[in-house]
Design a protein around this nucleic acid. Structure first.
Length: 896
RNA sequence: GGGCGAGUAACUCAGCUGGUCUAGAGUGCUUCCCUUACAAGGAAGAGGUCGUAGGUUCGAAUCCUACCUCGCCCACCA
């Protein structure tokens, strides 16, 4: 290792190590193992996915847990896979097709699906390779894809069971429709964004009035944000208590343009305060209106095609895009003198979560899952603590959503996905278009729901069957992920061993999409929770606080970062700046933290190896001859083990990272490594040097797997073949030496204050200083005498005398550590005024603290109420400060 | 409209159930040092009335209330 470079180069190492781990099968879980299981299922990235920084954070956290638990002796399964991502993937392939001037309808369903599968085969593993570069210790032998045979079977099974339980139905409802993707979306898939819009005021004439002159006599005014939907109006609604409109009871309204006759309905849900208090009712294009329609028995008139253009009902407007039609209708209303005004009005508008097109609430026949019955238990398991959220605040968010859950629209009018396992017998049903079949009752004649394709109608024996053309929402397979990846519906060994899984690590965006639904499906189909802990990490944002996204061009490419600084550095950096559940603001410079740390570890290890005498390693530590430094570092190391373990247990990864950083850098490297140079040929020192380093590498391995493995491989003295499969360190209480900790801290303080004085007085580094030490007790005297070498070496001085109540030497300045005074005669160079100033500043500072302490201790309330320990502690501190102040004052006196 | 999070050193952030907090880290800044592990480094240092105003308490960055700024999520006010 002597000839190793002084700079750590991850490129040489990471790929090499990863393939070794992989070929050794270290990631592969054994379902027959006797060990306690620990299982994490990956939030499956989209097959179309490319590793972004959010993935990097998400998977680093999972890998930390997996590696840590593996070291702790668990049988760890981190189960990977990808999601077919219906709409997203279909869009990608459609874009591909568009390059050949083709649309999917041009080549037909079958050919199109072939293309998607081909695309998947060619590009679908990109993200997997990228996860490997990150160092993810997933069990790749168990990699799953949501459209795999087994997972598809699970989907069908679940559909069937829900259908039989009456929890699935098909019918006409208002759903969110994306006119660009031309499919229905679930409520969760419509992202509501506050959008500046207009509220348009329009006169609707009252039937039988010739002129349009007097408001409420000749016409009433309605306000709407989407005038184009008026083509589908069937009524005008007002509040029954609204006296302005009470005279409308038996009146009919004439819809402008189309001249349709509209009823006036009275409903308490109409807010008299909003707009004019008169609401145009369009049951086919608005959820509120839809409800009103049911309540008041109104027609539903759908005025739009699937692409968002106006259909034949719109007359002259047919074929216009909805926004174009909006303008055109307003123009026409203006010509008709029925348009009053447009008022600025901001409101939340739904956008497609895949393509960001404004979604259209639209009446449509879709499949739904009844959610309330599923939610009940899912609420309980979180309330009773069977499932815990980290951080806890998400519990409330989860419960709030669960308690207000609405039915889940699961059908999508796309081709890529799990096709709905329903076949219709056209003979029984007599329908030409199966899309129009309404199915609300299981076992309805002519409708077959099952695992297998049917060719013969079970009711009439006819062969004129057609499968439902729709596919299921992508999340309808994802919500089964912990079950289906482990083999469900079969009672596999994997399922038995690893279900329920232990931790789920994910981002807040998919709590509703995924986390909540998995809990429901686990309880419904396996009668058990899918995981125990849910760790919700923050969102990665750029320095301006904007979410990183490709379209905004503010992304940091983790692969680029890995190329530049290595995976370990990326992992360490991102973990160290991510405190529990807080959003992360990231810029490229942040990765220097990890890069520099990796380099530090590399060099410290280089040094240890360089000075290692192989023979020495055969020897044993002789407890009786350990130096103070040896005992100190070992105790601090045990402390570190505890802190790191505790941090990981409570999902405080950044704490673990910073504890290790602080210990390795500032205790081990800055001090111990230097101390060790004074006894570099001692068995004790060499062994402790190696032991502590090895222990630290293990503690660090979950966060920085590559560099720790590389050094471990080079380092003699541990019987494990791989650090990855070695053992998590535990503190040795017997050898935790409190006195050594305190003694060493004191020495460090003495050395620091000597250096401080040297810097303050500009004493050249090379100049030797003489030191006189005044102590107040024999312990301190002993401490210093026994460890004079450290002071000498690191204070660059020689100790002339250590004595109780030593007299201050002439022309000296003093450093004060607790009760110890270190005098340094610096001869004629001493500038008395300057030294006085330096000391007075210290006195001022100290006296400030003292004042506070005195106030506290003179307060009877404090001494009476505070715990004894605390009072004692404060008293000790006061004594200490008082001593220091006295010391300092004496010093000033002595300068006269 | 409801909920959540953030506001701490020039910058980016830690600080968990109130007392080892005399408020820390990293970066940046100042001074010195290429000392044979590391200049991606070492040593020393400057820098903060912990958003504002109240309250609880012997004691508050930490708990409570209100407010101010910023960000996010949820919600059918057309």
């Amino acid at each position: 290792m002597n000839d190793l470079p002084t700079k750590y180069d991850p490129k040489e190492i990471e790929d090499k190590i990863y393939s070794k781990w992989e070929s050794e099968g270290l990631f592969t879980a054994d379902e027959a193992s006797e060990k306690e299981p620990y299982c994490i299922v990956i939030p499956p990235p989209n097959v179309t996915g490319i590793l972004h920084i959010g993935h990097a954070l998400n998977n680093t956290i999972q890998d930390i847990l997996a590696r840590w638990k593996r070291l702790q002796g668990y049988e760890v399964l981190w189960l990977p896979g990808t999601d077919h991502a219906g709409i997203a993937t279909q869009n990608v392939v459609e874009r591909d097709l568009a390059k050949e001037n083709l649309r999917r309808v041009d080549i037909g369903r079958e050919k199109f699906l072939e293309r998607v599968w081909k695309w998947k085969e060619e590009h679908g593993s990109t993200i997997i390779h990228q996860l490997k570069r990150l160092g993810s210790s997933c069990d790749w032998s168990r990699t799953r894809f949501t459209m795999d045979e087994g997972l598809s079977r699970a989907v069908k099974e679940v559909f069937l069971r829900l259908y039989e339980d009456g929890l699935i139905y098909k019918g006409d409802y208002i759903i969110n429709w994306c006119p660009r993707c031309e499919t229905a979306l679930s409520d969760e898939e419509a992202e509501h964004r506050d959008t500046p819009g207009m509220l348009y005021y329009i006169k609707y004439p009252i039937k039988g009035r010739e002129k349009i002159e007097k408001e409420n006599e000749d016409y009433i005014v309605v306000a709407t944000t989407r005038p184009e939907t008026m083509l589908g109006d069937v009524a005008v609604a007002v509040n029954p208590k609204d006296e302005r409109y009470s005279h409308l009871k038996d009146k009919t309204i004439i819809l402008p343009i189309l001249k349709r006759e509209l009823k006036v309905i009275f409903d308490e849900n109409v807010d008299p305060e909003f707009g004019t208090g008169a609401l145009k009712v369009t049951p086919a294009h608005d959820p509120v209106d839809f409800e009103l329609g049911i309540k008041h028995g109104l027609n539903r008139i759908n005025v739009m095609n699937s692409d968002g253009t106006i259909n034949e009902i719109g007359g002259d407007f047919e074929g216009m895009d909805r926004f174009e039609a909006r303008e055109a209708i307003i123009d026409e209303l203006k010509d008709m003198k029925l348009f009053i005004k447009a008022q600025e009005h901001d409101h939340a508008v739904g956008h497609c979560y895949r393509c960001h097109t404004v979604v259209e609430p639209r009446l449509s026949k879709q499949w739904f899952v009844k959610m309330k019955p599923l939610a009940k238990e899912a609420i309980e398991v979180v309330k009773d603590g069977s499932i815990k959220f980290y951080p806890d605040r998400w519990t409330k968010v989860y419960l709030n959503w669960m308690e207000n859950i609405r039915d889940w629209c699961i059908s999508r009018q796309i081709w890529w996905g799990h096709r709905i396992p329903v076949w219709y017998c056209k003979d029984c049903l007599g329908y030409r278009n199966v899309r129009d079949v309404e199915v609300n009752e299981p076992g309805k004649k002519g409708v077959y729901v099952g695992q297998e394709e049917v060719t013969k109608c079970p009711s009439c024996g006819g062969t004129n069957l057609e499968q439902d053309p729709d596919v299921l929402d992508t999340w309808f397979s994802s919500w089964l992920w912990p079950l289906s990846t482990l083999g469900w519906p079969d009672e596999t060994k994997d399922l038995e061993k690893f279900y329920p899984t232990d931790a789920l690590v994910t981002a807040q965006e998919i709590i509703f999409f995924w986390v909540a639904r998995m809990i429901m499906s686990g309880l419904k189909f396996k009668k058990a929770i899918p995981f125990k802990d849910v760790y919700i990490h923050g969102t990665v944002r750029d320095v301006t606080g904007t979410k990183m996204s490709k379209s905004l061009g503010n992304v940091i490419d983790p692969l680029e970062v890995i190329d530049e600084v290595g995976s370990d550095a990326l992992r360490y950096s991102i973990i160290s700046i991510t405190s529990q559940g807080q959003d992360v603001f990231l810029s490229k410079e942040k990765f220097e933290i990890g890069r520099n740390f990796a380099n530090k570890i590399w060099n410290a290890s280089r040094y240890v190896l360089m000075n290692l005498d192989e023979k020495v390693l055969g020897g044993k530590i002789d407890e009786s001859t350990l130096t103070l430094a040896d005992r100190w570092i070992r105790s601090k190391y045990f402390d570190t083990i505890e802190k790191v373990t505790k941090s990981l247990e409570s999902y405080r990864f950044n704490d673990a990272a910073s504890v290790l950083y602080d210990f390795i850098w500032h205790s081990y490297c800055d001090w111990y490594l230097e101390f060790s140079k004074l006894s570099s040929d001692s068995v004790n020192t060499q062994k402790i040097l190696v032991d502590v380093l090895m222990g630290c590498l293990k503690l660090l391995h979950p966060i920085m797997p590559f560099i720790t493995e590389e050094i471990f491989q080079k380092m003699p003295g541990d019987k494990a073949k791989w650090i990855m499969t070695s053992e998590w360190p535990t503190p040795d209480k017997e050898h935790t030496d409190q006195a050594a900790m305190e003694g060493m801290e004191k020495l460090i303080k003495i050395i620091t204050s000597i250096r401080n004085i040297r810097a303050f007085w500009n004493i050249p580094v090379k100049a030797d200083l003489a030191i006189f030490v005044d102590v107040k007790n024999s312990e301190d005297k002993e401490l210093i005498e026994n460890n004079v070498k450290y002071i000498k070496q690191f204070g660059r001085c020689h100790v002339e005398e250590v004595k109780e109540n030593l007299e201050r030497p002439e022309q000296s300045v003093a450093a004060l550590v607790d009760e110890i005074r270190v005098y340094m005669p610096i001869g004629d160079t001493i500038d008395v005024e300057n030294e006085k100033k330096r000391i007075s500043q210290k006195i001022d500072q100290m006296e400030q603290f003292l004042k506070g302490l005195n106030k506290k201790l003179n307060n009877k309330g404090f001494t009476a109420n505070a715990p004894e320990e605390v009072v004692k502690k404060e008293e000790d501190r006061r004594k200490n400060y008082q001593n220091q102040v006295d010391n300092l004052k004496e010093n000033i006196e002595a300068l006269r």
